[in-house]
Design a protein around this nucleic acid. Structure first.
Length: 767
DNA sequence: TAGGGAATATTTTTT
DNA sequence: ATATTCCCTA
């Protein structure tokens, strides 16, 4: 291997780009290990980097990109670098700039969707769109689908738009247009009309001059396939292609990449099959395997040395992931020798869990661990609530990442709709959203009338509205109101040239009565909404114009939460991918929640393995400390449910786990606090995990299943079998109920007063 | 047309 | 439990 610091050894193969090169030797290669360096320096030809968690994947990718520019292999605009999240894209840009110690502009660096949108805007007319097409979000998509379903004479209750959306998304994820799928690919869905609905939806999108997320990629593929000249232009341009989180790519993205990289073959994909957690969104781990076939002479680099976590954390994570079949099989290792074991702790219920996590966080905080360096990683977003409540009580600062995002707030979406109509008058969906917000007497009847005109004349709603105000179709009141509404928009459009856009938006908010609407609202959330509106106007200053802002909100749904304030992070496991923290809390490791019941029911082994990868991702986020908790009882939909510990708890190798006794189990278990003194024993570490199969169950006086070592139970009362599904039973505490399901000695009973619970049979009597 | 009140679904994960 | 959506009446 030649000396990378010697520039003469790497004679640039093209004219240097004056703007991106400094004369100093690359300062960034020094800290890399052998394999990392190999991945960075293998610049010619396809490269696949299989990078385990915490092995310096991002570093390799960014260094490689910096190196390409530094070595003048490509000018910035000749490099395509795609990520899945905007955050990752931002990070990559920042890091490349800091490696090169200068700003880098003109790179094609962004999410798949952003890059595809950029290409599509330039060639929109090739797929029947105008360059200013609207990008629909999930909400718009669903509303449109509802219309399509009803237009097809179907009931949107029997054919839920959501299900149709998922179906269509999956087709688009696979790169299939309506003409490329079989007539019956949708099976029974919508009485076999799935295909027809898809086609109708695409037609509607086109007439609305709109594209959904999937279309951004799909339309690109169509263009590439039908217009080779366009494809060639991009193939020539992109001398180097870099891909982050490759295991998350769906087929459409894969095809997109393959087409673009075909000419130069300089494609570098970084991924980890063990971190593939987006199968439900169409991600195809198989893409990793196909890579070698499509790019036969690919260099394969494995990164296995972990620089993040302690051996116990790695051991625990590896132990879990080892249960999966069909892995590419990396083995993470580390130099580090010390560190604490992964802690596992069972608790009484969700509140106790939140309380204990809160306490632990305060202890860590006392030990000078920054709150920013701690995270609570949940399986499902509803779990965040209990932590928020607890942390609020404690006065513990926290941020929920990925919760309700800024742009998903109703008031923000309303304003955006105003802006969309302003910029793109033909945006029917936006128009529909705001025509009567705030209330201006333009209800269903008026909207129907407008629709009728629009349909008859094949024009957009705004144009139809413009025609309607010249006729006597509408009631005078409605007509006047609509007329004012339209005049407002005309005036605002004229103002666009004269007024800075934040001021314009403020004007619109005032004159439309939108601000007034919330000021008049007595709801508890109204002040917050007004705050958000202010924040939105403020945010507008960051953008050059409204179009840019709208593109941003369509594609960048995340908002940067202030990293500089010291706060505990709460987020889903999915949201945590790519992040790391000193201390990680993993609550809710219960059967049914994690692995999630729905994954278990619908996805079989494949889905279970994905859940397992999720567990692996969660654990490997931790640098020093990982704490797993599971609650015996949890309130789901206002119903109490007893749960068994997750099978993943069993799968943790005992030698890497410390089982914690928890004296506080009964401290806050709602009404149960007094019933059982703290005599309840937890399993020793040996009992946990070492035992084959399930935990032995313990029960409290109510016969509800809680975790741990089986406790002596007085079974003298009742429990002589004879239960049957549908049978009526009586429980000392919960009263009468009906047996819904039986699993050995466990019964699931729908109590008349107390809701559905899982209880041990010996505590109920047949009646 | 709007506003209240009932019925109903929601909760897996997201660019 | 909460949020939306639906339905009915004023």
């Amino acid at each position: 291997m030649s000396d990378p610091f010697d520039l003469s050894a790497h004679e640039p193969d093209r004219a240097p780009a004056a703007d991106a090169v400094s004369a100093a030797p690359p300062p960034y290669l020094a800290g890399l290990n052998g394999v990392q360096r190999e991945a960075v320096e293998a610049m010619d030809g396809p490269v696949l980097v299989l990078a385990g968690a915490g092995t310096g994947k991002t570093r390799v990718l960014t260094t490689r990109l910096a190196h390409l520019l530094y070595m003048r292999r490509a000018r910035p605009f000749e490099v395509l670098a795609v990520t899945f999240t905007n955050k990752a894209a931002r990070q990559m840009k920042d890091r490349v700039e800091s490696l090169l110690r200068q700003p880098v502009e003109a790179l094609w660096l962004g999410t798949f969707h952003a890059m595809a949108a950029r290409i599509l805007r330039r060639h929109a007319e090739l797929v029947g769109l105008k360059p200013n097409f609207t990008i629909l979000d999930r909400d718009d998509q669903l509303r449109l689908l509802k219309q399509v379903i009803e237009a097809a004479g179907l009931d949107h209750k029997k054919t839920p738009p959501r299900n149709l959306a998922t179906l269509i998304d999956r087709w688009k994820d696979r790169g299939q247009t309506p003409s490329e799928i079989g007539k019956h690919d949708a099976g029974d869905f919508a009485m076999g009309k799935g295909h027809e609905l898809y086609a109708a939806y695409q037609e509607r999108l086109r007439s609305l001059n709109a594209a959904d997320f999937g279309d951004l990629l799909l339309h690109c593929l169509t263009i590439f396939k039908t217009h080779t000249d366009v494809l060639e232009e991009y193939q020539r341009r992109f001398r180097y292609v870099l891909v982050d989180e490759y295991q998350d790519a769906n087929v459409a993205q894969y095809l997109w990449l393959r087409l673009l990289a075909q000419k130069h073959q300089n494609i570098c994909c970084v991924g980890d099959d063990d971190q593939s957690i987006y199968g439900w969104r169409g991600a195809e781990v198989g893409n990793i395997l196909r890579f070698e076939k499509d790019f036969p002479n690919a260099t394969i680099v494995r990164l296995e040395q972990n620089y993040r976590s302690t051996p116990h954390i790695l051991g625990a994570a590896s132990g879990i992931i080892a249960r999966n079949d069909g892995r590419l099989g990396k083995t993470l290792w580390t130099d580090v020798n010390d560190g604490e074991k992964v802690r596992v702790r069972g608790v009484w219920d969700g509140q106790a869990e939140a309380r204990i996590v809160g306490d632990e966080i305060e202890i860590l905080q006392g030990n000078k661990v920054e709150l920013n360096e701690m995270a609570v990683l949940v399986r499902a977003s509803f779990q965040t609530r209990e932590f928020e409540e607890r942390f609020m009580t404690l006065g513990l600062p926290y941020r929920v990442i990925g919760g309700l995002r800024f742009y998903e707030h109703k008031e923000i979406r309303d304003v955006i709709a105003y802006l969309r109509v302003l910029v793109q008058p033909d945006d029917d969906l936006a128009f529909e959203r705001i025509i009567n917000v705030p209330r201006r007497g333009l209800g269903d009847a008026s909207l129907q009338a407008i629709h009728q005109v629009a349909r008859a004349r094949q024009i957009s709603l705004v144009r139809a509205a413009g025609e309607l105000i010249t006729t006597d179709e509408l009631r005078p009141q409605a007509r006047r109101s609509l007329s004012t509404f339209m005049e407002n928009f005309d005036r605002w459009r004229k103002l666009r040239g004269d007024l800075p856009h934040p001021d314009l938006v403020e004007t619109i908010l005032e004159e439309s009565g939108y601000t007034a609407m919330w000021q008049a609202d007595k709801g508890a959330d109204a002040p917050g909404r007004l705050e958000n509106l202010k924040e939105l106007v403020h945010a507008l200053e960051e953008f050059e114009n409204l179009e840019q802002f709208l593109e941003h909100v369509s594609l960048v749904m995340d908002t940067e939460s202030s990293q500089d304030i010291d706060m505990v992070n709460i987020m889903t496991l999915h949201g945590a991918k790519g992040l790391e923290f000193d201390a990680v809390f993993l609550p809710g490791w219960e059967e049914g929640l994690f692995p999630h019941q729905r994954a278990l029911d619908e996805g079989g082994t494949t889905a279970l393995e994905e859940e397992r990868r999720l567990a692996h991702v969660g654990l490997t986020r931790a640098r020093k400390l990982a704490t797993i908790t599971f609650a015996a009882n949890r309130r789901v939909f206002n119903q109490w449910q007893s749960n068994l510990p997750s099978r993943f708890v069993d799968e943790l190798p005992p030698e890497h786990v410390e089982q914690l006794a928890d004296p506080g189990v009964y401290g806050s278990g709602g009404g149960y606090a007094e019933e059982e003194p703290s005599s309840f024993n937890y399993a020793t570490p040996g009992d946990f995990g070492a035992r084959k199969g399930r935990f032995r169950r313990a029960v409290n006086n109510d016969g509800m299943v809680i975790e741990g070592r089986a406790k002596q139970i007085d079974t003298s009362e009742g429990g002589d079998g004879g239960f049957s599904i549908g049978g009526r039973v009586f429980h000392q505490k919960f009263g009468y109920g009906k047996v819904i399901a039986m699993d050995g000695t466990r019964l699931e009973i729908a109590f008349e007063k107390a809701g559905t619970k899982k209880v041990i049979d010996s505590f109920v009597k047949p009646v």
